[in-house]
Design a protein around this nucleic acid. Structure first.
Lengths: 203, 203
DNA sequence: CCTACCGATCGGTAGG
DNA sequence: CCTACCGATCGGTAGG
C-alpha cells in the first residue's frame, strides 16, 4: 500500500552525497553518514563494502546521467545549426545538475578521492563529455555561426560555468530551473559569438 | 651572497597550498606537509599554530590579491565603457589565478573548512568581490552596451568560468597567460552581449 | 627542529 | 542492524 521505499543502499548514497557536497568526501566520516540515518557506523557496512565504493557509485551515476542527457539533446537536434545544438546541450547539462545537485557536485569535485584506476576511468569519460561541447563549437566556428575562438578553451569556459551551478543551486532559490537553463544557454551561445535567438525552445 | 630565502612560514604555506590544491585540505595531514619539507610533523608547529591557521593565511592572502587587482583594474578604466571595464576585471582575475594557481584554488574550494567565523568573513568578501562584476554588468545593461540578462546570474556564470582556471591551469600548458586572459575577456564580454572589440588591450 | 607521546577519531571486521 | 573491538592515523603538546 505504501509507496515502495527506495533501496536502503540508495538511501545511504543520497545521505552521503548530501554530506559529501557540504563538507567534502575526506571530511565526512562513515559515522557522520550513519548518524544522519540514525544507525551505528558499523551498520553502514551491511549495505556498502567501503567508503570509496559509495563515492564510486555516486560518481558513476552522475557520469551516466550527464552522458545520457547530452546524447539525447544531440540526437534531438541533429541537423540543426550549432547555436541551437549548443543551447540544447547546455539545457541538458543544467537539467542534470539541478535535478540532483548533490550528486552532480560530488561528480564535479570529489572524483580525485577515487583510486587511481577509477579516477582515470572518470577522467576519460569527462574528456569524452567535454568533447561534445568542443566539437559543436568547432562546427560553429567552421560554418561561421560562431566567432573565431579557441574551441577547447571556450568549451572549458562554458563547462566551468555550468558546473558551478552544482555548487550554488538550491531548489528554493530566486530563479527556477527553466529560467536558469534559458539564461545559461543564452550566455553560453553568446560567449562563442553565436546568436542568442538560436537559444529559445519551442513549447 | 645567496638570495634571501623566503620566511620558513611562507615556505610551509607554499607547500601546503600545493597539497591542498591537489588533495584537498581535509585529505592533507600535517605529516604530509612535513614530509614534503623533509622535517617531522611536530616541527611544523614551530612555525604555525594550527592547521586551520595555515588555511586561513592562504585564503586571506588570496582574497586580498583578488581585491587589490580588481580595484586597480577598475581604477585604471574609470570612465571607460562597461565592456572595456569588464574585460579589465576579467584580465585582473586571470592574472591573480595564473600567478598563483595553488593559492587561488585553495581560496575557491577550501574555505568551507574554516571555522564558522572565518568562513563568514570570507563569504562576505567573496560577495563584495562578485558585486564588482554584478554592478559592471548592471551598468552595461542600463546603457545598452550589453544585452538584457539577469546581471547576478551573468556575474555568477562568468566568475565560475574564471575560477575554473585555478583547477586546470598549469604553467606548462598549451596556452600562455596572456592568451588565456585575452580569450576569457572576449568570452565573458560576449556572454553578456557586449562587443569583443572592447576587449583588446593596447600594448 | 627533534623524540616521545597524548586522546580522539578514522575505516573496517567479527560475530552475532 | 547491533556491540565490541582492531590497528592506523590524526592534530597537537611537552620538553628539550
Amino acid at each position: 500500500m505504501a509507496i515502495e521505499a527506495p533501496s536502503r543502499r540508495r538511501a545511504i548514497e543520497d545521505v552521503a552525497s548530501g554530506l559529501f557536497r557540504e563538507r567534502g568526501y575526506a571530511a565526512t566520516s562513515i559515522r557522520d553518514i550513519a548518524r544522519a540515518l540514525d544507525i551505528r557506523g558499523a551498520s553502514v557496512y551491511a549495505h556498502v563494502t567501503s567508503k570509496e565504493d559509495m563515492l564510486w557509485a555516486i560518481v558513476e551515476r552522475a557520469a551516466t546521467a550527464f552522458e545520457e542527457q547530452a546524447d539525447q539533446a544531440l540526437a534531438a537536434t541533429l541537423g540543426a545549426d550549432p547555436g541551437r545544438r549548443l543551447a540544447a546541450l547546455v539545457r541538458a547539462h543544467v537539467g542534470v545538475v539541478t535535478s540532483d545537485p548533490e550528486v552532480a557536485s560530488v561528480f564535479v569535485h570529489e572524483w580525485r578521492h577515487l583510486s587511481v584506476a577509477r579516477r582515470q576511468l572518470i577522467l576519460d569519460r569527462r574528456d569524452a563529455y567535454q568533447r561534445r561541447f568542443h566539437e559543436l563549437i568547432d562546427a560553429g566556428v567552421a560554418d561561421g555561426t560562431f566567432a573565431a575562438t579557441d574551441p577547447a578553451l571556450a568549451a572549458t569556459f562554458i563547462l566551468s560555468a555550468l558546473n558551478g551551478i552544482a555548487t550554488w543551486y538550491r531548489p528554493t532559490g530566486r530563479l527556477g530551473v527553466g529560467s536558469i537553463a534559458t539564461h545559461f544557454a543564452a550566455l553560453a551561445v553568446r560567449a562563442v559569438g553565436g546568436s542568442a535567438d538560436a537559444t529559445e525552445t519551442r513549447r
